[in-house]
Computed example of a mutant assay.
Amino acid sequence: MRDQSPRRQNPRQQGARPNRRNVLFGGAVVAAGGLAAACTSNSEKDDPAPAAQAGSLAGDNDKPGTQVTLGFSAPAADHGWIAAIAKSAEAQARKYKDVTFKPVEPTNDINQQISAVESLIQAKVNVLVLLPNDGEQLNQVARKAMDAGIPVVNLDRVFPDKLSYRTWIGGDNYGMGVSAGHYIGRKLKGKGVSDPVIVEIQGIATLPLTQERSKGFADALKSYGYSVTAKQDAKFTVESGNQVAANLLQAHKKIDAMWNHDDDQGVGVLAAIKQSGRKEFFMVGGAGSANAMREIESGGGVLEATVTYPPTMAASAIKLGRLIAHGRGMADLVELRVPQSITLASETVTKDNVDTYLPLGFES
Results as ranks from 00 to 15, higher is better:
Met1Trp: 06
Asp3Lys: 10
Gln4His: 10
Gln9Pro: 07
Gly15His: 07
Ala16Val: 10
Arg20Trp: 00
Arg20Asn: 01
Asn22Glu: 09
Val23Cys: 12
Leu24Gly: 10
Gly26Arg: 00
Gly26Glu: 05
Ala31Asn: 06
Cys39Asp: 12
Glu44Gln: 12
Asp46Gln: 08
Pro48Glu: 05
Ala49Gly: 11
Gly55Leu: 04
Leu57Glu: 15
Gly59Met: 05
Asp62Met: 15
Ala76Thr: 04
Ala84Ile: 02
Ala84Ser: 12
Ile85Gln: 07
Ala86Gly: 08
Ser88Arg: 00
Ser88Thr: 04
Arg94Asp: 15
Lys95Cys: 10
Ile110Pro: 00
Asn111Pro: 01
Ile114Tyr: 00
Ser115Ala: 13
Val117Glu: 07
Gln122Trp: 04
Leu130Val: 13
Leu131Thr: 07
Asp134His: 01
Gln140Ser: 15
Gly149Val: 09
Gly149Ile: 09
Gly149Pro: 08
Asn154Glu: 08
Phe159Pro: 00
Leu163Asp: 12
Leu163Met: 09
Tyr165Arg: 03
Thr167Asp: 08
Thr167Met: 13
Gly170Gln: 04
Asn173His: 06
Tyr174Asn: 11
Tyr183Leu: 10
Gly185Phe: 02
Lys187Cys: 01
Leu188His: 04
Lys189Ala: 13
Pro196Phe: 09
Pro196Trp: 07
Ile198Arg: 02
Glu200Leu: 15
Leu207Arg: 02
Gln211Arg: 13
Glu212Asn: 14
Ser214Thr: 11
Lys215Glu: 09
Asp219Lys: 08
Ala220Asp: 01
Ala220Leu: 05
Lys222Cys: 06
Val228Ala: 09
Val228His: 09
Gln232His: 13
Gln232Ser: 13
Phe236Cys: 00
Phe236Ala: 00
Thr237Ile: 07
Gly241Asp: 06
Ala246Ile: 12
Asn247Arg: 15
Leu248His: 10
Lys254Gln: 15
His261Trp: 12
Asp262Arg: 06
Ala272Asp: 13
Ile273Thr: 05
Ser276Val: 14
Ser276Lys: 12
Phe282Ser: 08
Gly285Phe: 11
Ala287Val: 10
Gly288Trp: 02
Ser289Ile: 01
Ala292Trp: 02
Glu297Asp: 15
Gly299His: 15
Glu304Trp: 04
Val307Ala: 09
Thr308Trp: 02
Tyr309Ala: 11
Met313Cys: 13
Ala314Glu: 02
Ile318Lys: 04
Lys319Pro: 01
Arg322Asn: 12
Arg322Pro: 05
Ile324Gln: 03
Ala325Arg: 03
Ala325Asp: 03
Ala331Thr: 05
Ile342Asn: 02
Ile342Lys: 02
Val349His: 05
Asp355Met: 11
Leu358Glu: 11
Leu360Met: 14
Ser364Trp: 01
